[in-house]
Design a protein around this nucleic acid. Structure first.
Lengths: 122, 122
DNA sequence: TTTTCATATGAATAATTGTTCATATGTTCA
DNA sequence: TGAACATATGAACAATTATTCATATGAAAA
């Protein structure tokens, strides 16, 4: 009882199905991938960003148009666009002082459609 | 300048593309749906819950097995399972004092696969 | 080159969310 | 029945995330 290191109090029950635990551990993706995945979904976990993405499903928009559409401040939209950009979800092009944002990912529509199915039939 | 109500300072620029704004507004899903969608993704936005879901992709597991697999306390797992349950993502069956959890949604696998594609090719 | 305007950013505050610890519930087996 | 155990839950604290306000940047037009 000397060397029960690390998660010594993580599990003190007897119902461990070792085969199941081993199988699941073997199939589990790399820790890093799991964090990245959680981070991606975190980005989707805010209704302002959801609205921005839905807007961009239609066509590219400038910051001002998005702010007007959502009835929010430029600053707030700009902050959220930065989050979307650093997640690799939107790209932009500049035309003079106006910046046009558009979607930069083919998976998002699909993910949203699936998510929509889930919340709709429950 | 008397009746500029509600979001009076939401947009004071001149680059509003009215047609775009109107089109996007018309296609935007109901506010309530957007919140529900954000709430669903919020659930996916935590790596512990991601790990639990990945575990359950393989087969049903009891709380103890999950805790052992992830090296976490029963309490922590139990709390997260409650979140997953109230989002309609997992179901459970009881066998004596052991509770077995399993996935209760066909969309999750798909959503995760798409998410994985996104993080993988960037 | 100064003013105006679209967008971006930093820092402070507010709000939300996760984790831990202590304790409760409910089932089994002696 | 009561001791042992698997799981659940409430409340306190810690950590993360969003929002706001003030100000900065950088392009265009006067």
């Amino acid at each position: 009882m000397t060397n029960k290191n690390s998660n010594k109090d993580a599990c003190n029950c007897n119902v461990i199905h070792e085969d199941v635990v081993n199988k699941v551990k073997a199939k589990m993706p790399k820790e890093e991938k799991l964090y990245d995945l959680a981070d991606l979904f975190k980005v989707f976990g805010d209704s302002t960003r959801i609205k921005i993405i839905y807007s961009l499903f239609e066509e590219e928009m400038c910051v001002c148009d998005i702010a007007t559409t959502l009835g929010m401040s430029h600053s707030a939209i700009s902050h959220q666009l930065r989050v979307l950009k650093s997640a690799g979800l939107v790209k932009f092009r500049k035309d003079g002082k106006v910046v046009y944002y558009s979607l930069d990912d083919e998976h998002v529509k699909n993910i949203f459609d699936q998510g929509f199915s889930h919340i709709s039939h429950k």
